[in-house]
Write a protein that binds this DNA or RNA. Structure first.
Lengths: 267, 267
DNA sequence: GAGTGGTCTAGACCACTGT
DNA sequence: CAGTGGTCTAGACCACTCC
C-alpha cells in the first residue's frame, strides 16, 4: 500500500529534525497551522505528531506546543567495577558501609533527598524463577520490590525485583523485614550474614516497551523503552544465591563492559 | 486529567492479556464488534489497539484481525566468548577462517542462504567519531555499513556502522574495497594485516526507538525498540583501532556478560 | 462479496498555558 | 481570554483476506 499521508508528514518532519531545521528544544509548527496549510485534517496531523512522539523525537505540551526532544544525560553503569566494589564493601564495619550506597556509586550524586521504597512478599516460585534457582516449582521465595527516587527530576531511577529462596533468607530474620531497607552494605552484605559468598555474577541485558507501572514509577516519556537487566549471583558452591530483574529508563542509561583479550604470542 | 476512554480500553485488554484471558496467538475482539458494544467510536477503539501494538502486546493483520503477540525467540550474544574466539581465529590460515563466520557464531545457524550487504564510504570524521578516536575533527575515516540477512524470516539480524581511520586502513588497499566482504576472519584479521593487535574491547549498551531505516532492514514489528551496542576496540598501544555501532532487534536479542569476583580471604 | 483493519474528514468539546 | 494539544464522534472510503 502507498505510504499514508500522516506517515509522509511525520517522515518529513523527522528529516527536518535530523538535518537541524528544528534543533533540540525548538518548537514544531502548530497542529492547527498545518491543518490550515492543507496538510490534512486535525486528526491526521495529530496522528503524525503522535508517531513522532512514539519515536522519541518530540514532546508535546498541552497549551504550549510540540518541541524537539533534548537528549537526556545518560548515566553510565559499569557492573564489573560496581559488583566488585559492592563485594569489597560488604566486609567493612557497619559505620563504613553506611557512608555511601550503591545508588550514589551509580549516579555520582551525593545522598540528598533520596527516598527508598520497598515491599517484601513471600510467594511460591513461578516456573521461570524456579528454573533460575534450580528448585522445585512452588518453592517459597522471598520477593523484594524496591526503587530509589529523588526530588531532583533529573535523578536516574531503577525499578527492581529481587528474589531469594525464603528458607535460605530466613536464617537471618532481619532479612525478612522490609523496614530494614536500605540495608547498609547492600545485598552482598545481607548474603554474608547467612554465610554466603558470591563467586561471580551473570548479567543478561535485553529491552522492551515499558508497562504502565514502569512508565509511571520511572517517569518515562512516551516512546522511551526500558533496558532490562537480569542479574544472577552465583555463590562459591555454584548455586544461585540471588536473582534480580532491574528495569532501567532507556533514555538515561548506558551499560558498559570491558572485555580483555589474551595477547598473541610474539613471532 | 481523567484517563481517556481509549486508554481505559487498552488497559483493560492489556490486563486480560496479562491474566491469560487472551493467550499468545489468540485473536482479540474485532474493532467493529467493540464499537457495536458501545466501547466508543471506531477511531477510539482503533487508537486503543494502536497503543497495544506500540507496547508490543498485539499485532494487527489487515483483513484478519488483531492477535496477541507471541514472544519471539531470543538470540543470546556473549561478547566475552565471541571476541576471544574472533581474535583466536584471526591467526588461522585462510581455509580455516573461511569455514565459519561470526554470524553463525552468534546465531548457531548453519550458513544457508545468508546474504551479505556492505557499503563503504570515506568521509571526514564527525565530532563524536573524532572524539572516540582522539583525532582531529574532519580526519578522513573509512565508514563501513553492513548487515547480513537470510531467507528465513526468523533469522536474527544486525545493522552495523563500523569506523576506521582511513589513513591506517589504507596501508592494506584490500581493506578499502567493499567487494571483499565478507572478509574471512572478520575485523580482527583485517586489523592483523595492517599490524594491529586488539588488546581489549569496551562494549557500551543502550536502547532507543528505531528509525525508519532500522525498522525496515531489521523487519521490526511496530513497538519493538532496538538495542544499541557501541563497541570500541583498543589496540596494544592504547589507541582506538576500530569503533562500531550495532543496532540489534530488541525482541530477539539478549546480551550476556559474566563478572568474576575476587574471593574473600578465609578467616 | 462479506468482513477485517487502516486512513481520512469535518466538526465538536475538553484540559491546559499563557497574558 | 485566545490559543494550544488531546479526545471523541459519525461516517466515508480503501486495502487486504478468505470463501
Amino acid at each position: 500500500m502507498a505510504t499514508p499521508r500522516w506517515r509522509q508528514l511525520a517522515d518529513r518532519l523527522a528529516a527536518q529534525i535530523a538535518d537541524g531545521t528544528y534543533g533540540p528544544g525548538d518548537p514544531l509548527p502548530y497542529i492547527r497551522d498545518l491543518v490550515e496549510q492543507g496538510e490534512g485534517s486535525k486528526a491526521l496531523v495529530h496522528q503524525a505528531f503522535r508517531a513522532l512522539e512514539a519515536e522519541g523525537l518530540v514532546v508535546s505540551r498541552r497549551g504550549k506546543g510540540t518541541f524537539v526532544r533534548r537528549q537526556r544525560q545518560q548515566v553510565r553503569r559499569e557492573p564489573q567495577r560496581r559488583y566488585q566494589w559492592e563485594k569489597d564493601r560488604a566486609l567493612l564495619p557497619e559505620e563504613e558501609r553506611a557512608k555511601t550506597g550503591a545508588t550514589e556509586f551509580d549516579t555520582g550524586l551525593e545522598l540528598p533527598e533520596l527516598r527508598f521504597h520497598s515491599r517484601y512478599t513471600t510467594i511460591p516460585a513461578p516456573p521461570q524463577i524456579a528454573r533460575r534457582f534450580d528448585v522445585a516449582d512452588g518453592t517459597l521465595m522471598l520477593c523484594r520490590r524496591y526503587w530509589t527516587s529523588s526530588r531532583d527530576e533529573d535523578a536516574p531511577l531503577s525499578l527492581i525485583y529481587s528474589w531469594l529462596v525464603h528458607e535460605v533468607a530466613a536464617q537471618n530474620p532481619d532479612l525478612l523485614n522490609q523496614d530494614n531497607e536500605p540495608w547498609p552494605g547492600g545485598t552482598m552484605n545481607q548474603l554474608l550474614t547467612i554465610g554466603i559468598e558470591v563467586d561471580h555474577i551473570v548479567d543478561e541485558i535485553s529491552t522492551r516497551s515499558p508497562n504502565t507501572e514502569e512508565t509511571e514509577i520511572l517517569a518515562l516519556d512516551s516512546g522511551v523503552p526500558v533496558l532490562i537487566l537480569k542479574k544472577t549471583s552465583i555463590d562459591t558452591n555454584g548455586k544461585v544465591a540471588e536473582y534480580s530483574e532491574v528495569a532501567l529508563p532507556g533514555d538515561r542509561t548506558q551499560m558498559a563492559y570491558t572485555i580483555p583479550l589474551k595477547r598473541w604470542k610474539k613471532n
